[in-house]
């Protein structure tokens, strides 16, 4: 812990290591981004990419970088950061390292909304909107079902798992009702993909993140840290436990829903990014900012692999995050068992 103080009573406290992890992950994400912007069918060097980004370059380069590759990169950064932030909040609120939106049903809800549009036939804008509605609706249902003098960790997890199972069944049914071509498009969406994402995809998520990230990071983080001591201890320290939990759940569900609307339900980023950040910062408590940077770097890196690992063949990014995330989860469980904690 490092403390900065001024003579007129201002005092700020921070962990240099956590700041370092956040900055390191941000630099990594920027590096991945630079490579992603410069590679592909029309390769460019980093210098050319930077020149184009700052307004130089040829018309063709401008089009390729600013119109084709940059929106995809920005979408990846935003989706990664939003999922990581939501995942960290969920894990901290339910006090369970597996409490991610993939497991609690919110992601499945967003998918249900999107699939309804696929079956009925609709534009990709309608699909994104339906994903948001599906995610938020699922959030409301889970909150109502888990409510009993407030919403507590285990109830939320169990209700969430139940709702997730129901929605997975519903989603399977919807897929069988979709026309063949539409079903193929739906499966691609369900995997989570950044293919062909434009500014229209990044825009709404950017707005949501700009509003909610300060609310969570500045407004709620200190109280969230107190909530880790248990509801009773937090409440004794003056945290309005119920209201805070409601605000944070709403914020996390919004983030997940808009992230799903932008890129589909990309798996495991929300689960893995908080764990990676925690391990790197070695700090107790929710590492919100480092998690966001890790999530952004993870998704940009995974998308780079998805685009470029197999020449001439693009993978949906969800395949890559699934493989990385699943692998990490297995490793985590093995480590926990070795440490005697599981």
């Amino acid at each position: 812990m490092t403390v900065l103080r001024t003579s007129w009573g201002l005092s700020l406290r921070f962990r240099p290591r956590a700041l370092g992890v956040g900055a390191g992950a941000a630099v990594l994400a920027a590096g991945f981004g630079l490579v992603a912007l410069g590679s592909g069918d029309y390769p460019m060097g980093p210098a050319d990419v930077l020149r184009t980004l700052t307004g130089g370059g040829t018309v063709a380069e401008q089009f390729i970088v600013l119109e084709l590759r940059l929106p995809r990169l920005v979408t990846a950064l935003l989706v990664g950061a939003a999922l990581a932030l939501a995942g960290t909040v969920f894990q901290s609120l339910v006090r369970n390292p597996l409490g991610s939106p993939d497991i609690l049903g919110f992601t499945q809800g967003a998918s249900t909304g999107a699939l309804v549009v696929v079956v009925l036939g609709g534009s990709s804008l309608a699909l994104a909107g339906a994903a948001v509605v599906g995610g938020l609706g699922t959030g409301l249902v889970i909150y109502a079902l888990a409510w009993r003098r407030g919403v507590h960790g285990y109830r939320l997890i169990l209700v969430g798992i139940g709702v997730a199972a129901i929605l997975t069944g519903v989603n399977g049914y919807l897929l069988t009702r979709a026309p063949l071509m539409e079903a193929a498009r739906a499966v691609l969406w369900l995997t989570g993909s950044l293919d062909g994402r434009g500014w229209a995809n990044a825009g709404p998520l950017l707005v949501v993140l700009v509003v909610l990230a300060p609310l969570v990071l500045v407004g709620c983080a200190p109280a969230l840290r107190m909530m880790e001591l248990g509801d009773d201890a937090a409440s004794a320290l003056g945290v309005p436990v119920r209201r805070l939990r409601l605000v944070l759940l709403a914020a996390a569900v919004l983030l997940v829903s808009f992230a799903a609307a932008a890129a589909g339900p990309v798996s495991f980023v929300a689960l893995v990014a908080p764990h990676v950040a925690k391990r790197l910062t070695r700090a107790p408590g929710p590492n919100l900012l480092p998690s966001m940077a890790v999530g952004a770097a993870l998704l940009v890196g995974a998308d780079l692999v998805a685009q470029r690992a197999f020449a001439g063949h693009q993978l949906p990014v969800g395949v890559v995050t699934g493989v990385i995330g699943g692998g990490y989860l297995v490793w985590l469980l093995a480590m926990e068992r070795r440490a005697g904690r599981l």
Binding site: S11, L237, G238
Partner: peptide, 15 residues
Amino acid sequence: RGRYPHQGLLRQWSR
């Protein structure tokens, strides 16, 4: 953490 009710955004860790 017991100091939480005495702290604020700009007063995170006083003497």
